[in-house]
Design a binder for these strands. Structure first.
Lengths: 344, 344
DNA sequence: AACATTAATGCAAGCGGTTGCACTCGTGTC
DNA sequence: GACACGAGTGCAACCGCTTGCATTAATGTT
């Protein structure tokens, strides 16, 4: 059925090894022979079988990409960028959705290990220790996590959270709620750490609500808690939760940003289309996808450096944040982007 | 480095073929032997190499999933459902993004062909003829396309478009614009065909604008054309375009639905979060993803039927449609869903 | 007791490639 | 003219696994 290297060899009157070399070491074969072989291959529709090749070379030209939830709008741009970058280097990508389940993450990494050159673990929920162990079984790059010795692409959410809290404090908010994300999320811990210290420095009270599922529903259901806590401003773990939260607040009769200001994180496409448009911390997801693929592919050549790439974030001020009850200071102009602007 | 069947054989004192059978034909091996082998395998951390297995069995336990644009919110739920369904059957999926480029579609199918059991071609842009040819090289299931002899999952967008146009005509709109999708899209042709005949039957004028890129920007840029055409209602190829269109209309000073009513298609998550909330035709994308995987996996067992699965759509009336200038008749209650409701 | 059957296992070929090594030439060197 | 050399090609082993066939031992049949 399928045409193999042997068919091409027969058709062009050479040994299979010559056909093989025509494709994987062209400089070792006579130009005339090569063009003859190529012509036959073309004519027969021959394509090398990568799985067979991988068996002996150890290189699969595949990459595993593991995310918590494909349907979370944070991930598609990352996946798209990673896939595109991978294909530029002639690699294909497996995508797996773990449904926020750490056990499934482990299982999937192991299941994929043999047929990939490496795995991109995006916003993993499993423990550092487990990640370290898995990275001994298959080359790993983590996105949104920092572990010594493991190549990583991390977004500066801490800086983003700091700017967000400063922004809120600057608007006069004295009591801020932090709606945190899922258990196991490094990002969530970073945000919490940064928000806590920033709030203290700004002399604002910080109420932490969570952990919560990082979804619209997750945000919706904490609206009550936010109001009960008496916070006049909220920083949410991500935009989806912020949007759900706004829905919940509106349903409970609170105005946004009149009564409560809301800041999200991620700047998903949605954020500039909701009413009010969401103030949020933009994270460079596409860049992260590209960088992660690049690190993974470089990893093989050069394992002396386990690089950690840091990507900047920026606060995008739109319409979901407004003055709080306290005195407000002008925001630091260095931190802000034109309100309502399309994210770059 | 990696532990192979030989290591397990050595450790458990049996021949490799016994180890092999322990995993792929357990009934052929003595229960005692089997448990010993399994214990050794477990202890060594052995996992069968699927690529090697595929080389001889011809079954890879992989599926290719090809979409036009991962970042288009229509696709993630489909991908998620397909991935989940595939994993239920112990399959992994390759995801490829073709950027709406038919040539890339072909290339990717061919590149993937050898390492998958089949390919899901979602909303392909290439020609029927090419799809037929490719389906001779690798099992194919198409989503949102109908080709005799090729298994397909199609959503009833024609029915959806009919209900949408009837809805608009019923509201008194006499001049409707159809903002069509990308060239090569079966869905777009179906919508056009259905909208055309439905508009004629309803005695309304239909202006077709397009083809256009199926993105927010694509919708944004035709706002002018819609207004210039003098239409008071628009049916857009998808929600993303509808949302972009609404932005464009608002920017041009037209109210929605006051001056112009807008209907989208797909009911992406976004649609109930924008203002005004979008009236749209809900398509069962997750069900399509599952069905497509099921068809692909069944295809092998049973090639006597090349099934075509049809999935129903429904009109979800929200806030972006309102009365037009003409007399309006009450909408058919059988076709409507509670306004603003969460899509099921 | 001789034979047929069945269960369990081993043997070896082969899936589609890659690659170290050996071999054959034509050429340049002394 | 003998020799070394490099370019081009063939040979065969091997990657990790499956599978048809042969072999052996245990069981059932008459």
């Amino acid at each position: 059925m399928a045409v193999t290297i042997r068919d091409v060899a027969k058709a062009s009157g050479v040994h299979i090894s010559t056909v093989s070399r025509t494709f994987s070491a062209p400089h070792l074969v006579n130009p005339n022979t090569r063009s003859r072989v190529l012509a036959c291959a073309e004519q027969l529709g021959y394509r090398p079988n990568r799985a067979a090749r991988a068996l002996i070379t150890g290189r699969t030209y595949n990459i595993g990409l593991i995310v918590a939830d494909i349907a979370n709008p944070f991930f598609p741009p990352l996946i798209k960028a990673a896939e595109s970058q991978a294909r530029k280097h002639d690699h294909h990508i497996f995508v797996a959705d773990t449904n926020e389940d750490p056990a499934l993450e482990e299982e999937v990494v192991r299941a994929l290990a043999k047929q990939v050159d490496g795995v991109l673990l995006c916003s993993p929920r499993m423990s550092n220790a487990l990640i370290e162990q898995l990275s001994r079984e298959v080359p790993l790059v983590v996105v949104n996590r920092q572990i010594t010795g493991i190549p990583a692409v991390a977004m500066d959410v801490a800086g983003g959270a700091r700017r967000a809290v400063d922004h809120l404090a600057g608007l006069g908010h004295r009591h801020i709620a932090l709606v945190s994300g899922p258990r196991g999320s490094w990002t969530s811990r970073e945000i919490r750490r940064s928000a806590t210290s920033t709030a203290r420095a700004a002399n604002a009270e910080l109420t932490i609500i969570g952990p919560n599922p990082p979804t619209e529903v997750g945000g919706l259901t904490v609206a009550e808690d936010v109001l009960r806590a008496g916070a006049t401003a909220v920083l949410a773990y991500n935009d989806l939760m912020a949007i759900g939260l706004i829905e919940g607040l509106l349903a409970a009769g609170a105005h946004v940003p009149g009564d409560v200001s809301v800041v999200g994180i991620d700047d998903i496409m949605l954020s500039r289309l909701t009413r009010p448009k969401l103030t949020t911390v933009a994270t460079p997801t596409a860049a992260a996808g590209r960088a992660a693929v690049d690190m993974l592919l470089a990893h093989g050549d050069d394992r002396r450096t386990t690089a950690h790439v840091h990507l900047q974030t920026e606060l995008v001020i739109r319409d979901s944040t407004g003055p709080g009850p306290g005195p407000h200071s002008p925001a630091d102009p260095g931190d802000v982007i034109a309100p309502g602007g399309v994210a770059s």
